[in-house]
Measured scan of single mutants.
Amino acid sequence: DRIFMTRTEALEFLLKAHQTAVDKIGHPSHKQTPADHAAIEALDRLLLDVRARRVDQFQINASAAQIIVTD
């Protein structure tokens, strides 16, 4: 599946995904793992790359739809 978004929409989408990941590892019942921190770092890099126009398409994980940034 493909989803087309403007750059602004894609950045909002990534910010929400980032916040969800941060909230998940901050929850008291969740045991933090290196994979959790790696996922947040990957989202940080992706946010910067989309914002800087170095990336025009991405996929958060293998089961997610491919996001295509349109400007």
Rank of each mutant, 00 (worst) to 15 (best):
A52I: 06
H30Y: 07
L14H: 00
Q57H: 13
H30I: 06
H30E: 06
V69I: 15
A21T: 07
I25E: 02
A42K: 14
D56P: 02
L47Q: 03
A38R: 09
A21G: 02
H27A: 13
L47F: 11
T8W: 12
E41G: 07
Q66N: 04
S29F: 06
D71P: 09
F58G: 00
L43G: 00
S63V: 05
A38D: 10
L48H: 15
I3H: 05
A35S: 10
V55C: 05
L46N: 00
A17M: 11
V22Y: 08
A35V: 06
K31L: 15
L11Y: 08
H18T: 05
A10W: 00
Q59S: 10
A17Q: 07
L15D: 05
H18Q: 03
A42Y: 15
H18L: 13
T20F: 07
Q59M: 11
A21P: 01
D44Q: 15
D71M: 09
I60S: 03
A35D: 12
A38K: 10
S63H: 13
K16H: 09
A42G: 06
A52R: 10
I40S: 02
A38P: 03
I40L: 12
L48C: 06
A62R: 08
R2V: 15
P34E: 10
L14E: 00
Q19D: 06
L48W: 08
Q19V: 07
D1M: 04
S29K: 03
E41D: 10
A52P: 01
D44L: 13
D44G: 12
A10L: 02
F13C: 04
E12W: 06
L43W: 02
T8R: 08
I40G: 02
V50M: 04
L15E: 10
A65R: 06
A35C: 04
S63G: 06
F4D: 02
A64T: 13
I67S: 00
E12D: 13
L47H: 03
R51Y: 13
S63R: 07
D36R: 02
E9V: 04
V69H: 01
T33I: 03
R53K: 15
H18V: 11
L11I: 14
Q19I: 15
I25Q: 05
D71H: 08
L14G: 00
K24Y: 06
R7S: 04
